[in-house]
Simulated scan of single mutants.
Amino acid sequence: MPTNSEVEMSPAEVDAHLSRHETGVLALARDDAPYAIPVSYGYDADERALYLRLVSTPDSEKREFLASTPEARVVVYEEDGDEYASVVGVGPLERVDLDELTPETIAQYGETQRPLFEIWADDKPDLDIDLYRFTPETLTGRTVVVERDEE
């Protein structure tokens, strides 16, 4: 029977994990209703912040959740053979106004490779593109290794 060895990541390992990936899952909650979507992000290890470019239509469920300033959770994970690693951040998701952009933050948004506009059924003029910064209040990571018994 396989057993699991679980190790908490150090802050440097968490930063490395978030820096080498560009996609994860953004989960929002409002009035006991969950909403989770795949996202692309840029990560600034010095600020320990994720930068997201979110695309939606004006009447979408995503837009409704974002308008309610919900508590957010971002999960970034990977699996490699018998090793599984995940990082979870919890905190507020802040909309960034265009007049607040700096050259440094613009570079972070440039790291967000998705969404690809071609995947949207709606015309491009009907899409809202908003920039968000996620600076988690807690940011933790774990690595799990499955150790299989020799038979």
Score class of each variant (00 low, 15 high):
residue 135 T to Q: 15
residue 139 L to E: 05
residue 19 S to P: 05
residue 38 P to V: 11
residue 33 A to R: 13
residue 149 D to H: 12
residue 98 L to P: 01
residue 56 S to L: 07
residue 32 D to Q: 09
residue 132 Y to V: 03
residue 88 V to S: 06
residue 78 E to Y: 04
residue 16 A to K: 05
residue 39 V to P: 08
residue 142 R to K: 02
residue 99 D to L: 07
residue 57 T to A: 06
residue 73 R to M: 13
residue 42 G to D: 00
residue 143 T to D: 11
residue 117 F to C: 09
residue 10 S to R: 07
residue 90 V to H: 10
residue 107 A to D: 11
residue 117 F to N: 12
residue 25 V to Q: 11
residue 43 Y to D: 13
residue 39 V to F: 01
residue 62 K to I: 13
residue 28 L to T: 02
residue 21 H to R: 15
residue 57 T to D: 08
residue 129 I to R: 08
residue 148 R to S: 12
residue 80 D to N: 12
residue 109 Y to M: 11
residue 85 A to V: 06
residue 117 F to R: 14
residue 80 D to W: 05
residue 78 E to K: 05
residue 111 E to R: 13
residue 91 G to Y: 02
residue 142 R to I: 01
residue 91 G to T: 03
residue 102 T to I: 01
residue 138 T to F: 09
residue 135 T to G: 15
residue 100 E to L: 02
residue 149 D to R: 15
residue 87 V to S: 04
residue 110 G to A: 14
residue 93 L to K: 02
residue 7 V to F: 13
residue 80 D to T: 14
residue 23 T to M: 14
residue 100 E to Q: 06
residue 64 E to P: 02
residue 98 L to I: 02
residue 107 A to F: 01
residue 134 F to P: 03
residue 1 M to F: 05
residue 6 E to D: 11
residue 150 E to V: 13
residue 146 V to R: 12
residue 28 L to D: 05
residue 29 A to T: 13
residue 28 L to S: 05
residue 4 N to H: 10
residue 99 D to P: 12
residue 85 A to Q: 14
residue 86 S to H: 14
residue 134 F to E: 00
residue 92 P to G: 14
residue 23 T to G: 10
residue 98 L to S: 07
residue 112 T to V: 12
residue 122 D to A: 15
residue 84 Y to F: 09
residue 11 P to Y: 03
residue 15 D to Q: 07
residue 131 L to Y: 05
residue 112 T to E: 08
residue 139 L to Q: 07
residue 53 R to P: 13
residue 7 V to C: 09
residue 33 A to H: 08
residue 140 T to I: 07
residue 31 D to F: 04
residue 84 Y to D: 01
residue 43 Y to R: 14
residue 79 E to R: 15
residue 75 V to C: 12
residue 63 R to S: 04
residue 92 P to T: 10
residue 48 R to P: 03
residue 34 P to D: 08
residue 119 I to H: 12
residue 146 V to S: 06
residue 38 P to I: 14
residue 24 G to C: 07
residue 16 A to Y: 07
residue 37 I to P: 04
residue 142 R to M: 01
residue 144 V to E: 08
residue 121 A to L: 09
residue 74 V to Q: 03
residue 126 D to V: 00
residue 52 L to W: 05
residue 89 G to K: 01
residue 48 R to L: 01
residue 43 Y to N: 12
residue 27 A to G: 06
residue 58 P to S: 01
residue 120 W to G: 00
residue 93 L to F: 10
residue 95 R to H: 10
residue 50 L to G: 11
residue 37 I to M: 10
residue 109 Y to V: 11
residue 4 N to P: 02
residue 91 G to K: 00
residue 119 I to S: 14
residue 133 R to M: 10
residue 103 P to M: 04
residue 14 V to A: 00
residue 131 L to Q: 01
residue 106 I to K: 10
